[in-house]
Amino acid sequence: MSSGRAIEGSFHLTGGDFTNAGAASSELKSILTNLGISLAIVRRAAIATFEAEMNVIIHAVAGVMYYQVTADSIKVILNDMGPGIPDIGLAMQEGYSTAPDWIREMGWGAGMGLPNMKKNSDEFKVDSVVGEGTTVEIVIRIKEESP
């Protein structure tokens, strides 16, 4: 990738649309792979954004996933119109989930979403206003291996 230039774009996410759930992260994963970023880093980015995307699908009405890739880092910001998170500390605990039973029956709502995002990010921020929505910012640094 030529240095200094950023590659960016965005995806619209629709709450409750389980048919296309994960499609944005899947596309971002192939964009990153095609940029020649190492598989381990692509995998971390894919997992973190996929969990974040699923949170929007499960909990929010709609959202936007915006990404920016530079020579140094992958930054993904997810902004949703959703219920918001009343207690972020609690939501960060493994196993804590407010998802209803039918979501659990679809294989989600195990309370691992936010912890999985954090584990796979180098920088991770959550901002939320109850009744308005949530913004998640994920940064993954690319530099690690030098050729």
């Binding site: 389980f18 309370g111 691992m112």
Partner: peptide, 25 residues
């Protein structure tokens, strides 16, 4: 059957998933 569990492992070389969750997820 819980998808986040699958995303929890760091080392999964040439891996197989056995699941009862029969959907696109």
């Amino acid at each position: 059957d819980l998808m986040s569990d699958l995303l929890h492992f760091s080392s999964m070389p040439r891996s197989l998933l056995i699941t009862g969750l029969a959907n696109t997820q």
